[in-house]
């Protein structure tokens, strides 16, 4: 009995209908928190934080560069794990999450690379250097694009999902390499600002807005993932009676 209770949440989580209906209620709250955090973090980081002693005001790019990179990396784990769950338990929703996570991760990696390049110009004197951190991030972008592209190479959803999940899992090797690249190789890229162990290498006046931005980016990721997944659910479940009901109800409202 107790065991049953513990597992019902797992099966409900796997239900596209449950996800669609629940997230409908979550979205307004999440969007509100997301906007508040991002606006506060943006204004704080751009206008109120003190400039860096060595880099001057160009360091303010950190407030989009680091959050985008952090979430792009965490998002890769999420995508790969969702793919693995799909492979092991054949849960439809987890494949939908994997599909939805790919374009978001790709876009965030793109932001990390572009803002890094822009930051590189005043700091290193070059937009692009083939440094270990930057090159491994570029590989991350290609992995995300690969997972996106595999969708169109198979005629059946299932085969495409499996292939994407396997590519995602294999590509996971790259993530710890990215994390450690600044320690393992002599790189131009500066070492990590935030460490899991030990204090951050930043003054609290600069660090606090960064924390706000990182949390804001995580919630942004959640909102975007929910939106993409809801569209994906409609695309794949168009034959389900609850989806038809949803559409007819919407039509009746107009």
């Amino acid at each position: 009995m107790n065991l049953n209770l513990q597992w019902t949440w797992f099966h409900r989580l796997g239900s596209p209908r449950w996800f669609y209906q629940k997230t409908q209620r979550w979205l307004p709250w999440l969007s509100f928190i997301m906007l508040s955090l991002l606006i506060v973090g943006l204004v704080w980081g751009l206008a109120y934080a003190p400039p860096d002693a060595k880099q001057g005001n160009s360091f303010r790019i950190i407030y989009v560069h680091v959050p985008a990179s952090v979430v792009a990396l965490a998002g890769y784990y999420l995508m790969a794990i969702a793919g693995a769950v799909g492979l092991i338990w054949r849960i439809k929703l987890s494949y939908m999450l994997m599909r939805s996570a790919a374009p978001i991760g790709a876009a965030l990696t793109f932001i990390a690379l572009v803002t890094g390049a822009i930051w590189g110009k005043p700091t290193w004197g070059a937009y692009w250097v083939w440094d270990a951190r930057i090159t491994s991030m570029l590989i991350l972008l290609f992995l995300y694009i690969g997972v996106m592209a595999l969708r169109h190479t198979y005629s059946s959803h299932e085969a495409a999902d499996k292939a994407s999940a396997i590519l995602g899992l294999v590509g996971m090797v790259n993530v710890p390499i990215i994390y450690k690249s600044v320690d393992w190789w002599q790189t131009l890229h500066q070492p990590a600002t935030i460490k899991f162990t030990g204090a951050p290498s930043m003054h609290p006046d600069m660090f606090m807005p960064l924390v706000v931005m990182i949390v804001g980016f995580y919630i942004f990721y959640a909102v975007s993932l929910i939106l993409f997944t809801r569209a994906e659910i409609l695309r794949r479940e168009y034959r389900a009676s609850w989806v038809k009901q949803l559409v007819t109800d919407k039509l009746a409202e107009k």
């Binding site: 001057g56 790019i61 793109f110 932001i111 803002t115 942004f220 939106l227 809801r230």
Partner: peptide, 23 residues
């Protein structure tokens, strides 16, 4: 440094708005 900082932020915002609008 304004050119660098503002262009980085504007590009990021445009991409992020896209991630909301597209789905």
């Amino acid at each position: 440094h304004g050119v660098y900082v503002w262009s980085a932020f504007i590009i990021s915002i445009v991409v992020m708005v896209g991630l909301m609008v597209k789905p």
